[in-house]
Design a binder for these strands. Structure first.
Lengths: 166, 166
DNA sequence: GAGCAGCTGTACAGATTGTCCAGTCGCAGC
DNA sequence: GCTGCGACTGGACAATCTGTACAGCTGCTC
């Protein structure tokens, strides 16, 4: 787990790219007030250092017909961990899966086409011997969508975030 | 909530971009076997249709010093929802927040610098009048990181996913 | 059979990317 | 105080990509 220390410039660069991914290195360097080579070097460092995993498209499940999100806590039968992982990996509606502390449990994020469809998804998820029980919580609202900027600012020593437009 | 219907080409395009975000429209068109204009038009459609939210950098919290992830279920005092949202929005370590079914609860994803540091984060999260109680589950493993490709394939009518390299 | 939407192939100007280089700056060590 | 080193600057170059446009072809609908 290589930890890369992020300085202020890295932080601002990440923040800038997070807000406006389309600008590219050239424009980013311009706005940061540094030479392009510098921005490019930083970006490269962040990428090779594992800080930036990639620039994959962020797909909105709701926009492609899966507007319902839910979290399911799964209770797993002892020793069935690997099989359950494999099973869940095969379910497209399982967007992510974590093993968590507690009695050998897992937490997964699900999506479905509707509340009714969620039943189908859950049935498919729990329809596997290794899973003893599932507790599902449907997401109603998402006041804070997945975000990284505040954390990056924290890591970069850039406190007092809030909207520093420019 | 505009739902865009995704056809096979859209699906393959999204999958391609998800796997290798750096290739650009030109190369993507090449690999999909279509004219660049077509790929460009599709991409534009997906973007304006809200399917693709953006191409922001995916930052790994662990790489910038926050290797511990946890999910906290919060029990909120009646009528304190808005205040609690605002409070949590101000905590950088809160990466996302959902309101979920159940007795007016919320679920949030947290990160911390260490298990010990997690205590600090939790204290900060629950150190707010509106929050009655918090149940925290620490993430040990992440067998399925947030993914979208299988769902996209499903939506595009491209079943039988699994590794169709090319 | 006409009309329309979508795709193809092509073209062009403008901008960006990946690289490389010499010069400068600030800092640590001798 | 001086040397060495890493990082940044400003500039340059070829190769590539992007945004955009246009004419022709195809398949499907009315």
């Amino acid at each position: 787990m290589t930890t890369v220390s992020i300085d202020e410039l890295d932080g601002r660069l990440l923040e800038l790219l997070a807000r406006e991914p389309r600008i590219g290195v050239q424009e980013a360097a311009r706005r940061l007030g540094v030479a392009r080579g510098t921005a490019q070097a930083r970006l490269e460092k962040l990428r090779t250092g594992g800080v930036i995993r990639g620039f994959g498209p962020e797909v909105d499940p709701a926009a492609i017909g899966f507007p319902v999100t839910a979290f399911a806590t799964l209770e797993i039968k002892q020793g069935q961990g690997l099989e359950v992982r494999e099973h869940l990996r095969g379910v497209p509606e399982v967007l992510e899966l974590h093993t968590i502390t507690g009695q050998g449990d897992m937490l997964c994020r699900l999506v479905a086409r509707s509340n009714a469809d969620l039943q189908r998804v859950i049935d498919r998820v729990v329809g596997f011997e290794g899973i003893v029980r599932a507790a599902t919580a449907i997401v109603m609202e998402n006041p804070v969508p997945l975000r990284m900027v505040p954390l990056v600012r924290e890591a970069a020593g850039l406190r007092a975030s809030d909207e520093n437009r420019g």
